[in-house]
Amino acid sequence: MAVSLVRSHSEKQAGYRELVLEAPTIAPLVRPGQFVHLRIPRLEHRLLRRPFSIFMADQDTLTILYKSVGTGTQLLTQVEQGEAVSLLGPLGNGFPEPNNDHIPLLIAGGYGVAPLYLLASRMARTGVLFVGGRTRTDILCDDEFEALGWDVQIATEDGSRGIQGLVTSALDAWAANNAGAEPAELFACGPDGMLRAVGERAITHNWKGWLSLDKHMGCGMGACLACVQRIRQPDGSIEWERVCKDGPIFEAREIVWEQENEDNHE
């Protein structure tokens, strides 16, 4: 746990902001896919911290990339340079070590691109980023990935950038041309619906699919048991695991999605 000072806080593009925090006790430990649990200043009468994926980390600072969507993130936009923020982290397990014999396919929904950028920046090889959003202003970090030498495939629901449709359409188009040519490994972060669809592709194409889940968290440290997810165990049994502590990354085949579970009970 640390009190961090805000080094800078700026708009990245319409609706999205980048918060750089001085966190010399946390930042050097960060692995891609981990998160910090942040107490939002001025969020009065609300107790819980808010989890944020880590977008960048060096020896002294870590950066989060967020969208102002609710009361908490709206208040976060008011945080100023030099202000103190309470942080717990780095939390969660992060992505597994990528298999360098496989081409990495990163699939991002909106600001789900944040932990994938940290992952890509530390990878030994380049691959393909599939990034999707509702409209062109929801497409983030394509320049950063291109600067790393990545192939960037964009999809927007309204067709204002890249192909029109969901990010999985872009993935399907790529797979139709490339599947079988080279073994691939998939890493994804975004809303549940996207993750589930991405997980189905991973299974279909016989790729490993590492999905970063986002569940409402209480403590962020595995104590409160609020953010549980049903996970298939190696022996075939199904157990609750804690997204904050046992995740937030799970392999596509392990995750028992809600509807699937209801189907099993019927």
Binding site: L48, L225, V228, W240
Partner: peptide
């Protein structure tokens, strides 16, 4: 014991309402 189905916790002014269900 499995406890309850999520969502299991919701934040309210000045507190939390939880229904973890003793997992």
């Amino acid at each position: 014991w499995e406890g309850n189905e999520p969502p299991r916790m919701v934040e309210v002014p000045g507190g939390l309402v939880n229904a973890i269900g003793l997992q």
